[in-house]
Design a protein around this nucleic acid. Structure first.
Length: 667
RNA sequence: UGGCCUAUGGUGUAACUGGCUAACACAUCUGUUUUUGGUACAGAAGAGUCUAGGUUCGAAACCUAGUAGGCCAACCA
């Protein structure tokens, strides 16, 4: 067991510390608490991966708890979809729970809080209350109802529960501090009146608890040890603790574990939006076909697109956990899915943009069934037969009448290998009236041992089956479409995010099943879409293969690779400082050229610019060398020596860096 | 005008809690192998850790100030 010590993220550090301080390992318990008001997306996967992942590493139970305290928004449909997605990802929850299961207990605790003078019934309009609440920079003021008697509060709360009051007339609030700098502590609402049918409790209740009151107490009831959520809940922690500490007083005999909330930064993906509300808009406005459109970042979308649970889990693992805002490059997600599919997807041949090739020396009525390896990454995948005949399709892109030596594909007079078949040579082309090539005439050679640079995929026209092939591009053309202050995210929609083609496939694909994944050789990974039927096959492109050839070709004006915002002219001193950072690493020769440049720049530098650099840390020898060089220029141009200068020079002469000493000695 | 959080190569995370030349992955670029311009393998480039002070023999880490970004005023979660 020489397990290499993996570095821990900050949450794991906290847990390790708690364990070291005496928390028994058996007490560890986590939870994933979605609100059933929408579909899960890749961002949620991070939260799922963290809590369920912790459960796996510490062998601790993880509850799936639906935070269903707002019947106006929540539906059973979402509960079912969420369960399906989590299961699909391969995680197992210990218990399926609902906050609504705790409504009675929460109610009893609330009554206790009233009796203890920690909560009161307010009877004002939301406008007035908002007024009293103040702003982040301005304290709030007390409600006139804040000091109702316990008896009155009890009676009113009882009445609220019994349905005696219309919605909006009364509220239960915690009595904390209207002047707290944290607005969440300014007498937060615990209960509101809502005459709505709840997806689980039906009409049992007409008062519903708010998030802050429910969430932490649900954690506590479940004896969750570590309650992990995203950063925006950080300000809630203070309130989480306040409620928890009071309730702990009521129940500590039976519920000894007070949970602790910790927050991590949520996942952001480049060229993607993550907000449920905005995703809903894409669905409602018909930009996509539904929540499971393969372009959507939802779990169901990714699943339909052909992503594997493994690849998504791997992605979440690689993304890490920390507290700073981040934007993950989609290329990491693509890397993860390619890595997985490379190992498990069988290779097949499909031509998506065909051009006809006639092999003139191959008999017209002949056909051969050639052996093809299914997956060279997996020996157990075996072999299959693919038909070859006189007329085949290859990709249009794979032929040019004329091309340079860097072009490995077919050109007139050139030879290429047909994957799993023969080597062919292009002799002539047939063109239509517009000059478009309609046929390429080739001759084949049975000797396949020859070395040729290029290998093409192909499909026998006579045997080919057709399929609808859907290719996807990113939904948005901007790296962070929803964080532009002056533009709506809809402005960045990519109008060409979906391309539908007719593909010609080798006949082995005639009987595929929905969800099956393949590599179309040299093109990418594809899976069978839910829309696919025996009569009409439909494939989705999951992701393309890496293509180092495409990168060499001139990009179609898409300069997304280097939008480096060039800073406007930097000052001479900052350029010199920049040189300083590298100076000691440069070769002697380079040092000379850089030195000359610094001497030139130094002419524009004033003493006031330079002086702050005298204090540079000893360790930063490069910066000090560069400063000396510049200083010498200034001295030469008439600058008088002063104490600061002399001290700096003396210190340099005494340094252990030879270059620095040498430069200083010249003064 | 407040409070809280964050700042490490282009991106994301590390750095055994103050100690080696700041590590790993993605992205980028080179080669080698290859019946996929894929995979695999080998290598390169790129960061004095936001800035300035301070503490220390020693700071990415601790302290102070500044700067930048994020979050906080729903009877949402």
């Amino acid at each position: 067991m020489s397990e290499e010590k993996k570095s821990l993220n900050f949450i794991e550090h906290i847990i390790e510390e708690d364990l070291a301080n005496g928390l028994p390992k058996e007490k560890l318990r986590f939870r994933f608490p979605p609100e059933p008001n929408g579909y899960l997306h890749i961002g949620h996967t991070k939260a799922i991966g963290i809590s369920f992942g912790l459960g796996e590493t510490y062998n601790a139970p993880v509850n799936l708890r639906f935070d269903d305290t707002n019947p106006a928004k929540e539906e059973q449909e979402y509960v079912d979809a969420i369960k399906k997605d989590i299961s699909w990802l391969g995680y197992q929850w210990e218990n399926e729970l609902y906050s609504s299961d705790y409504f009675q207990r929460l109610y009893e605790w609330a009554v206790q809080m009233i009796k203890d003078g920690k909560a009161y019934v307010d009877s004002q309009s939301s406008e007035v209350m908002a007024e009293q609440k103040g702003t982040p920079t301005q304290v709030g003021t007390n409600s006139p109802y804040r000091n109702r008697s316990v008896e009155e509060n009890l009676e009113l709360f009882e009445g609220m529960k019994a349905g005696k009051f219309p919605a909006g007339t009364h509220l239960l609030r915690a009595k904390i501090d209207m002047e707290d700098p944290n607005m969440l502590m300014r007498d937060p609402i615990m209960y509101r009146i809502m005459f709505a049918k709840h997806h689980r409790t039906g009409d049992d209740w007409c008062i519903y608890p708010m998030y802050d009151w429910t969430h932490g107490e649900s954690d506590y009831i479940e004896q969750v040890s570590h309650s992990l959520c995203s950063l925006e809940f950080k300000p809630h922690r203070e309130l989480y603790n306040w409620f928890r500490d009071h309730v702990y007083d009521y129940a500590k005999d039976k519920l000894p574990m007070p949970p602790k909330q910790r927050e991590f930064a949520r996942l952001n993906l480049s060229y993607t939006i993550m907000s449920k509300r905005k995703l809903l808009r894409l669905v409602e406005e018909g930009i996509v076909s539904g929540w499971d459109d393969p372009r959507m970042p939802t779990i169901s979308g990714l699943r339909r697109r052909g992503y594997t649970p493994n690849s998504i889990r791997k992605f979440i693992e690689k993304v890490g956990v920390a507290k700073r805002e981040n934007v993950i490059d989609v290329s990491l997600l693509e890397f993860c899915i390619r890595e997985d599919l490379n190992k498990i997807a069988n290779r097949v041949m499909a031509v998506l943009d065909p051009i006809k090739v006639v092999i003139t020396n191959y008999p017209e009525d002949k056909e051969e069934w050639l052996e093809a390896e299914n997956n060279q990454e997996d020996e157990s995948a075996g072999y299959r037969k693919v038909p070859f005949s006189r007329e085949i399709y290859i990709e249009k892109d794979d032929f040019k009448e004329e091309a340079g030596s860097k072009y490995f594909r077919l050109k007139l007079g050139g030879e290429v290998r047909l994957k799993n078949a023969y080597i062919i040579k292009a002799n002539s082309v047939v063109k239509d009236a517009n000059g478009n090539i309609t046929e390429i005439h080739c001759t084949y050679d049975e000797d396949t041992s020859k070395k040729v640079k290029g290998t093409l995929h192909w499909v026998s026209i006579k045997h080919a089956i057709t399929a609808e092939v859907r290719e996807y591009d990113r939904l948005f053309m901007h790296e962070s479409p929803d964080s532009q202050k002056d533009k709506d995210f809809m402005a960045f929609i990519n109008p060409k995010s979906l391309t539908i083609k007719t593909g010609y496939l080798e006949p082995s694909l005639a009987e595929v099943e929905v969800g099956e994944r393949f590599q179309f050789q040299r093109l990418g990974y594809f899976n069978v879409d839910d829309d696919s039927t025996a009569e009409k096959l439909v494939f989705n492109k999951t992701v393309g293969l890496r293509d180092s050839w495409a990168k060499q070709k001139p990009k179609p004006q898409n300069n997304q690779n280097k939008p480096k915002p060039q800073q406007q002219k930097r000052s001479a001193i900052s350029v010199i400082q920049q040189f300083g950072k590298k100076y000691t690493k440069l070769s002697d020769e380079k040092q000379q050229t850089v030195k000359a440049e610094i001497q030139e720049l130094a002419k524009e530098v004033s003493y006031d610019d330079l002086e702050p650099l005298f204090g540079t840390a000893v360790k930063k020898a490069g910066t000090r060398i560069v400063t000396i060089i510049a200083l010498k220029v200034l001295l030469k141009n008439g600058l008088e020596k002063n104490d600061a200068i002399n001290e700096f020079i003396d210190k340099a002469k005494a340094d252990k860096n030879d270059v620095l000493v040498a430069e200083a000695a010249e003064i």
